[in-house]
Simulated assay, not measured.
Amino acid sequence: MLKDSVYDRVSEIHSEQPWFVLGAARDFLLYHSDIPEISHFYSFEADPYTEQVLAIPDGCVDILFDCDECRPTAKVCGTTLEATNAEFIHNHRYFGVRFAPGLTPDFLQASANELIEHQLNLLDVAPIASIIFEQIIRCSVFADQVAIFEKFYANQCARKSSKLTLFAVNEIFVHKGNIQIQDLAESTGCSTRTIQRQFLADMGMSPKAFSRIIRCQSAVYDLNHSKNVTFADLAFDLGFSDQSHFLREFKKLVSVTPLDYLHRVKQEAYVARLRYF
Results as ranks from 00 to 15, higher is better:
Val10Asn: 12
Arg264Ile: 06
Arg159Ser: 15
Glu171Leu: 08
Asp202Pro: 01
Asp66Lys: 02
Ala219Tyr: 11
Ser206Ala: 09
Tyr276Val: 14
Lys75Asn: 08
Lys151Val: 09
Phe20Leu: 01
Leu103Pro: 03
Ser15Ile: 14
Lys3Asn: 10
Met205Val: 13
Glu87Met: 07
Asp106Ala: 13
Ile13Leu: 13
Phe152Arg: 14
Leu259Cys: 06
Lys160Thr: 07
Glu134Val: 07
Phe142Gln: 04
Ile136Thr: 01
Asp242Leu: 03
Phe199Val: 09
Thr73Gln: 12
Asp222Val: 12
Val220Arg: 07
Asp66Glu: 10
Leu274Asp: 03
Gln267Gly: 04
Ser11Trp: 12
Ile132Trp: 00
Thr194Val: 04
Tyr94Lys: 02
Val21Gly: 02
His14Asn: 15
Lys151Asp: 14
Gln119Val: 13
Phe99Gln: 01
Phe173Thr: 04
Ser33Trp: 04
Lys75Met: 10
Met205Cys: 12
Glu171Lys: 13
Glu82Asn: 14
Val229Asp: 08
Asp124Val: 08
Lys252Ile: 13
Ser140Gln: 11
Arg138Lys: 15
Lys266Ile: 04
Tyr276Leu: 10
Ala232Lys: 15
Ile56Tyr: 01
Ala126Asn: 01
Met203Asp: 07
Glu150Thr: 11
Ile38Leu: 11
Val146Gly: 02
Ser226Cys: 15
Phe44Pro: 08
Thr104Gly: 04
Ser218Lys: 09
Thr79Asp: 04
Asn178Asp: 12
Leu22Ala: 07
Gly204Val: 07
Ile38Trp: 11
Asn178Tyr: 03
Arg264Trp: 06
Leu253Ile: 01
Val265Asp: 02
Asp260Cys: 07
Tyr94Ser: 08
Asn113Leu: 14
Arg159Tyr: 07
Gly96Thr: 04
Leu108Asp: 06
Pro258Ile: 01
Val97Arg: 01
Phe99Asn: 02
Val256Phe: 12
Arg273Pro: 03
Gln198Gly: 00
Asp106Cys: 07
Glu186Trp: 03
Glu82Ala: 14
Phe149Ile: 10
Gly177Pro: 02
Cys216Pro: 07
Arg159Asp: 07
Ser33Gly: 06
Ser206Glu: 07
Phe44Gln: 06
Lys266Arg: 15
Arg93Trp: 02
Pro207Leu: 07
Pro258Gln: 03
Val125Gln: 02
Asp62Ser: 11
Asp237Ala: 13
Phe142Leu: 03
Lys160Arg: 15
Tyr94Met: 04
Arg215Tyr: 11
Val254Cys: 00
Ile35Lys: 09
Val125His: 03
His14Pro: 08
Asp124Met: 09
Arg26Val: 03
Ala269Pro: 02
Asn121Gln: 11
Cys67Leu: 12
Arg71Asn: 15
Glu134Asn: 12
Leu81Lys: 13
Val125Tyr: 00
Pro48Leu: 05
Asn113Cys: 11
Ile172Ala: 05
Asp4Thr: 11
Arg215Thr: 10
Val229Cys: 09
Val256Leu: 13
Gly204Leu: 03
Leu64Pro: 03
Asp62Phe: 08
Phe95Gln: 08
Gly177Lys: 01
Ser162Arg: 00
Glu114Gln: 14
Gly204Ala: 04
